[in-house]
């Protein structure tokens, strides 16, 4: 490490410092926290922030992934590689476990699994007695998120009650919970999609390849492009096309759609993000389009 001359603080510096402060509060005040890591871009940023918060020591919490087993294989490979490089402990709990235990009953095996992640997450929280889960959600993602606290309190059923949130003043966070209750902590609440890309670029963070433009087989369904996979096949007279696309988010393969793009570098992605006219979830998440209140309902049921 060399000497760094101090410079004027930019918005990214201020956001970064706020996030580091939040993570250290969790470490200091929560008995048994975990950091939710999916291999997606937001949780990749969380890991860098955790390095900035705790190095040269190890993280004071394990990484936890709730695996829908509908994830893109590139992302899962990246997840394992990154956890290994960091030398941190990664816990994976699979939705298959919850399905086998009949805690989740699917209508069909190919059904989107995003909504059911909550069950497995709550099971994992119970299994490890986590009292705080650090997640990579941002308030600019969705209107239900816009009203969520940085330290978001959940009752013993894992539920979020939007009408009964703790007031959050200055940056004095109330982290106290009763046994069985827990909090979700969102250190990057105040970051936007643009901030995330700028930070990934500034920090030179590695991300899964599918965030960059690549040739992929897709089906046009409504206004969305569906990626063809073992779970998504054309129906009726739908045609498979191969076009250049990239993913803005990575999640369940059955409901995460790529956008047409030729952006092959981080700079290209930043330019596209600056000029796009569609929100991140509007473009890519079919599960949020189901109804005006989809995210709000999922969150009330314990979704992170």
């Amino acid at each position: 490490m060399g000497n760094v001359i101090h410079r004027k603080l930019t918005h990214l510096d201020v956001l970064e410092s706020e996030s580091i402060h939040i993570m250290r509060e969790v470490a200091a005040e929560c008995g048994n926290p975990a950091l939710l890591f999916s291999g997606g871009k937001d949780s990749i940023v969380l890991l860098r922030l955790a390095e900035k918060a705790f190095r040269p020591a190890r993280f004071p919490f394990p990484l936890l992934h709730i695996d829908t087993e509908h994830n893109f294989p590139e992302v899962i490979a990246f997840r394992d590689k990154r956890a290994f490089e960091l030398g941190e402990r990664l816990i994976v709990r699979s939705m298959e476990d919850s399905i086998r235990a009949k805690r989740i009953v699917l209508k069909s095996p190919d059904q989107s699994r995003n909504a059911f992640q909550s069950v497995t997450l709550l099971d994992a929280i119970e299994e490890f007695k986590f009292d705080a889960c650090i997640g990579g959600a941002r308030r600019d993602e969705e209107k239900a998120r816009a009203k969520e606290r940085i330290f978001s309190f959940r009752d013993e059923f894992g539920q979020w009650d939007p009408k009964n949130q703790r007031p959050e003043l200055w940056d004095l966070y109330n982290t106290r919970v009763h046994p069985g209750e827990n909090i979700r902590v969102f250190p990057i609440s105040n970051w936007t999609e643009m901030d995330i890309w700028q930070y990934i670029s500034r920090e030179k963070l590695e991300i899964p390849e599918i965030y960059f433009a690549h040739e992929r087989e897709v089906i046009r369904r409504g206004s969305s492009l569906l990626p063809v996979s073992r779970l998504v096949k054309p129906v009726g007279d739908e045609r498979v096309e191969t076009i250049s696309v990239r993913f803005r988010t990575v999640g369940d393969m059955t409901c995460t759609c790529p956008v047409e793009s030729t952006a092959s570098t981080l700079e290209d992605i930043i330019v596209e993000t600056a000029t796009t006219r569609i929100t991140e979830r509007g473009a890519t998440r079919m599960d949020d389009q189901t109804s005006e209140a989809s995210m709000e309902l999922r969150k009330k049921e314990g979704y992170f």
């Binding site: 760094v4 101090h6 603080l9 201020v14 970064e16």
Partner: peptide
């Protein structure tokens, strides 16, 4: 390492 640090740096 920094020679000087200012608010609100962590």
């Amino acid at each position: 390492r920094l020679i000087e640090a200012i608010a609100p740096q962590s």
